[in-house]
Nucleic acid binder design. Structure first.
Lengths: 353, 353
DNA sequence: CTGTTAGCGCCTTCAC
DNA sequence: GTGAAGGCGCTAACAG
């Protein structure tokens, strides 16, 4: 079944069918009705492959993420699909598992399917891997690491705002020794978060805290290990900010095993606001970096680039703000910070809002 | 850049280029070399759209899942992508969010892109939604609910084995009152798990337990609510088996808040073995239903169907076995089952292995 | 306003 | 063994 079949049954030319489908306004209502009727009866759907072959646009956007089993990404994938579908775009999802070979393969798959644009939401910095795409003039959008080139957009994340709020929230709760567990510092985004922490600390003169910078790896296990380190620190911190939620959850998990009660004995703040964070015990106070917004920004960046005829000469920059979400993993610092274990606390944190 | 360009530069016809790419054996090595050289220099990749237009096969499989933000699905998606890519297939992922409208849309997207087959891994029972696909003779594969029709495969899950192991494991630990928290019984797969539990209980004559059947909803919140119910039961159960891991995790979470220690005061067993289960505290004993295997079975089912020329007259059936994975959320039943709270236990369960 | 026609990029007979 | 040519399903000029 194809456009000819429809045309035959509706007793019109294939051109009229095509026009009807694409709602070209010049079609007589009478004919349009006849065509639609046949289309419905037949359950006809145009062949997208043929369409894109002639139009030169596939209406497919590529989406490259690190790994979908990392709880940070599913929401991104989901909301990207959501908005893409609303715009009649299809999405070709690809995971890299941090493996350069898979990245190369991903790029290749994108090219073979002739995607109209690619969102690289890996938070990594594998820039030259995308040369193939660039030279083919495929619009790209990155997070934080996009080079300033034509057709390449960048979503810059304003880490500072959220992290400053977190630091000041803790300060207001009388914390003076705040640890920071970063991600792998080789990651530009991890380094940026750490830097934002340092600046926020300096701003309010809590310089003691600068001795409490620990490098983690953005995993739960990393968080557990980091907590052990923290427990061995002299002048043990009373609060800790983590570079991502999984780390924070690891810290909480390990605290539980060490008999340290959160938030009573230790205040914990995460970063990302993944779905899971509201469900841990206690619900995690965290810095929200909206995954939905990232997807939307990324999609719109690509869409804008596709729709404009003269490519942006130097790439467009979008900014995503972060902000603190107060839940129950932070509390006023305790005077004598013993490490007893009690019944799950029902104490409420004092908020600064 | 296209096949003509390659042909021109290699000074051969486009037919030869095509043959070279598709490794048709009749091409002279000499020519083949020339062609490949040009292809590499140019970085030429064949246009998949054009290919599938003429070949009639898109080399795309559709994958329909419920929602990618449910921790059960990411592994499925990932491993499906994995195996698909190894076979040079692309995958069109679609989420339904349990919304019939989105399901319809999903089917439509599949048809428009002319997928060669669709894996419906939603564990639901939205059968007639796929009539469109069936009538177009698109191979389909379902889990548990596939109707016995040509070109439709079915992955039947052997719930019984794993659940029986779980029940017997608990019995060996002297538990006699075992609760079961099911999923929504409207779901065929949930009902099947419950039935397997009932049979396994009967088999060893623990009929008391049959009074402890609770309907949950496969979410963490459902698990929390179910635990509260359990606490109010007279002859309170000393162990609970959950229809999925998220429910079990909810039970554990709520137990924590109620001051009930796991596994000391209550043994908990989950179902699915999602990634997260190894990381909760304590690590969850659960019944493994390998997501990777599901993906592989589903993919191969589709591939087989695509490759055979005469469609299977009645659909093929595949079986996936389940089995118990022992971790730390189960223990010997306690003589006096008070509800004190203690330091995180380091007690080890006695295993039956 | 509608129909005819020429490709989009590729595979595949069919001659040579 | 290789090339020429037709056609996959569709859109977009161009006529009428």
């Amino acid at each position: 079944m194809n456009i000819h079949e429809v045309a035959r049954r509706a007793k019109v030319s294939i051109a009229t069918v095509s026009r009807t489908i694409n709602s070209v306004p010049t079609v007589t209502p009478e004919l349009s009705r006849r065509v639609w009727k046949v289309i419905d009866e037949l359950g006809y759907y145009p062949n997208t492959q043929a369409r894109s072959l002639v139009s030169g646009r596939s209406r497919i956007f590529g989406l490259i993420v690190s790994e979908i089993t990392n709880p940070f990404f599913p929401e991104i994938v989901q909301s990207f699909e959501d908005i893409a579908v609303r715009h009649n775009y299809e999405i070709l999802t690809t995971t890299t598992i941090h493996d350069p070979k898979r990245m190369t393969l991903a790029v290749r798959r994108m090219i073979e399917r002739r995607v109209d644009g690619v969102a690289v939401l890996t938070f990594g910095m594998e820039d030259e891997l995308f040369d193939d795409l660039k030279s083919r003039k495929v619009p790209l959008v990155f997070v934080d690491v996009g080079p300033p080139l034509p057709r390449i957009s960048n979503i810059r994340i304003d880490y500072r705002n959220g992290i400053r709020q977190a630091v000041q929230h803790l300060a207001a709760l009388r914390h003076t020794r705040i640890a920071f567990i970063s991600g792998p510092l080789a990651l530009k985004t991890a380094a940026a978060r750490r830097q934002a922490f340092i600046e926020s600390i300096r701003e309010i003169g809590l310089s003691q805290s600068l001795r409490h910078l620990i490098e983690g790896n953005h995993t739960m296990e990393g968080g557990r290990a980091a907590l052990k380190e923290i427990l061995n620190l002299r002048n043990r911190p009373t609060a800790v900010i983590c570079s991502n939620d999984m780390t924070a959850i690891g810290v909480m998990r390990q605290s539980y095993e060490e008999g340290i009660e959160i938030p009573h004995d230790l205040s914990v703040i995460g970063f990302d606001d993944i779905h899971l964070s509201q469900f841990v015990t206690p619900p995690l106070t965290t810095i929200r970096m909206s995954q939905t917004e990232i997807s939307h920004l990324a999609f719109n960046a690509l869409l804008n680039e596709v729709q404009r005829e003269t490519p942006s000469s130097t790439g467009t920059e979008y900014v995503l703000h972060t902000s603190l979400v107060l839940r129950d993993s932070t509390a006023l610092v305790k005077a004598g910070s013993g490490r007893g274990r009690k019944k799950a606390s029902s104490s409420r944190r004092a908020t600064t809002r």
